[in-house]
């Protein structure tokens, strides 16, 4: 009995530091953010503590007319939808590029596997900001891509590549692609290749093998990869700022604007909560999906 007690104590002690870190760095800041989002707005930055107000949440959909009546305003909704759309696009492109890459990696010899995994993680040695600036050099009017195309005589006027939504999608895909490749690789690497051989023995075509054997086995990796790409894309700040040319905001930039030039902290905090909610919804969705497919394959 005494031994069991001390074991619980040890367990508590071991969990303690992790719980404290989560409490101090995650739970308390989140509660602070939620609290700020329902405070009154101080027009010179900050909030009026203790003055409760739901204005920040109303502002997402409605705007105040001159006579203080409410009118529907879809500007912020539009920005949010655009963020979701761009993140979705990024996830799909990453999946299309990442899955074949991971499959290729998983079917090499162990020595090559190690080298390829190393190469996939290599971009992380460089700061995200620097990597985005590199895309500016590639995509701009007199940059590498336009330069090469016009040298080859394919185009006479530079293609407008930089400062477009396409540039943002490219930048996001490039930034987060390794997060798609690595989890899929991890699930495919564990795959028993004899299953594939059996499929061929049973006269399955290559496509059937891929659809019926390989992809179902990779589902956990695909789901994890999609989450890891979709979630950070949704909150992206640097990439739309640098590659989008400041013409269109994403939700991350909108939040930045509220804490910066617009000095509307409650609204910024409320948007932060909304972003969190969107992430939670997508995580729940994926978790449910994972549970379902997991049940089917076993």
């Amino acid at each position: 009995m005494a031994g069991r007690l001390s074991r619980t104590k040890i367990r508590a002690l071991l969990i303690g530091p992790a719980a404290a870190v989560i409490g101090i760095f995650v739970v308390i800041p989140l509660m602070l953010m939620a609290w700020i989002s329902i405070q009154g707005r101080d027009y010179s930055g900050g909030v009026i503590w203790g003055e409760l107000s739901g204005e920040a949440y109303l502002r997402m959909i409605f705007e105040r007319e001159l006579d203080d009546s409410l009118a529907v305003n879809f500007n912020y909704v539009l920005i949010i939808l655009r963020s979701v759309w761009l993140s979705f696009l990024t996830t799909v492109i990453s999946l299309l590029v990442g899955f074949p890459t991971a499959l290729f990696m998983a079917t090499r010899t162990p020595k090559w596997k190690a080298i390829l995994v190393f190469m996939v993680t290599l971009p992380f040695w460089t700061n995200l900001l620097v990597r985005n600036y590199a895309w500016i050099l590639l995509l701009r009017d007199h940059g590498a891509i336009n330069g090469t195309l016009s040298w080859l005589g394919i185009i006479s006027e530079p293609l407008p590549l930089l400062h477009t939504q396409l540039a943002v999608a490219i930048g996001l895909t490039y930034s987060f692609l390794p997060f798609m490749v690595l989890p899929i690789y991890a699930s495919l690497e564990k795959m028993d290749l004899r299953l594939v051989e059996s499929a061929f023995d049973l006269y399955a075509t290559r496509l059937m093998t891929l659809r019926r054997i390989i992809i179902p086995l990779a589902v956990p990796g695909i789901v994890a990869g999609c989450i890891l790409v979709f979630v950070p894309s949704l909150g992206a700040y640097v990439t739309p700022e640098l590659l989008g040319g400041g013409k269109t905001l994403m939700i991350g930039n909108l939040i930045g604007l509220q804490f910066g030039a617009a000095r509307n902290w409650p609204f910024g905090a409320a948007l932060g909560i909304l972003l969190l909610a969107l992430v939670m919804i997508s995580l729940t969705f994926y978790a449910l999906k994972l549970k379902n497919t997991g049940g089917n394959t076993q």
């Binding site: 500007n75 539009l78 269109t248 905001l249 604007l257 617009a262």
Partner: peptide, 17 residues
């Protein structure tokens, strides 16, 4: 004034949305 700043911010957000 706060009212004017608010208009400014609304115009900016509409421009960028």
């Amino acid at each position: 004034s706060p009212k004017s700043k608010d208009l400014r911010e609304k115009v900016w957000t509409k421009l960028k949305s």
